[in-house]
Amino acid sequence: MNTNAYITFLLIGIVLVAVDGQIIYHSGRRYLENSYGAPEAGASMARLVAVMFHLAVLGILALLSLISFGGDESSIPSVVGKLGLLLLVLAAAHGITLAVLSRIRDEQVGENLVARKQGVTGDGRNSTVNPVSPGTADPTRPSVSPSLEHGAPYSAPGEGR
């Protein structure tokens, strides 16, 4: 492969990888933001996955540039053949990356469900509400509506009301 064909192949390959990597990053960030509660955590995971994608596919691109397709390596069919192989590899890497993002999101959604079942909120506090004693006017605690039967403050069963 002559220098012009080699550089053309590498430039086209780098542009394809960069564009696909940016699509993965931006879409993955939106996909993961909802599952993590904090948008910056989802963006961070998407960035890590996108960097892994870029490094892996650029490494494959470098290896593909060394493969000989036989015949005249500087010919258009040779460059197109290498680009076709690169596109197939890029599609496979894109699919694997989507599977990784999906698995990360599924694990985070599962962890969130378990935490909600155990009564822990996103900030680590217990989400159980403590009852309000009659006559207590603490604004940090929720108030309870009066009992329908007695027109009085809420009474627990067995308190004699």
Rank of each mutant, 00 (worst) to 15 (best):
I96H: 08
R141I: 08
I67F: 11
D123S: 03
A91D: 11
P142K: 09
G70Y: 10
L113V: 04
V129C: 12
V114P: 00
R105H: 01
R125D: 09
A38P: 07
R116K: 08
A137E: 11
E159S: 05
Q118C: 01
V15Y: 05
V17H: 09
L16H: 03
L66N: 02
G81H: 01
S27F: 15
R105G: 00
N34W: 05
L113N: 08
V80I: 11
S35D: 03
A62S: 10
G71V: 06
V89D: 09
T8N: 14
L61K: 00
Q108M: 08
V19N: 13
T121R: 12
I24L: 13
T97Y: 00
V114T: 00
V144C: 12
A152M: 12
Y154D: 14
A92E: 06
A93K: 04
S155P: 14
I76M: 11
G158L: 04
R47V: 04
G160M: 01
T3M: 14
L101R: 00
A56N: 11
E73H: 12
T140I: 04
L55P: 07
L64M: 06
G70P: 12
V114E: 12
A62W: 01
P146V: 00
A56H: 12
S127H: 09
L83Q: 05
Q108P: 05
V19E: 10
A99T: 08
H54D: 07
A152Q: 13
Y31P: 09
I104Y: 05
A152P: 07
S127W: 02
A152V: 14
L32N: 01
H54Y: 05
L88E: 11
L58Q: 01
G160K: 00
V132L: 10
V132Q: 14
A41V: 09
P153N: 03
P77S: 13
Q22Y: 11
A50M: 04
S145P: 05
V132E: 06
G37Y: 07
V19M: 10
S155R: 13
S65G: 15
K82P: 03
V120G: 06
G135V: 00
P39S: 11
V109C: 01
P139S: 02
S78Y: 05
Y36R: 02
V49W: 11
L66F: 06
R29I: 09
L10F: 13
R125Q: 09
H54R: 13
M52F: 03
N112D: 12
S127L: 08
F53N: 08
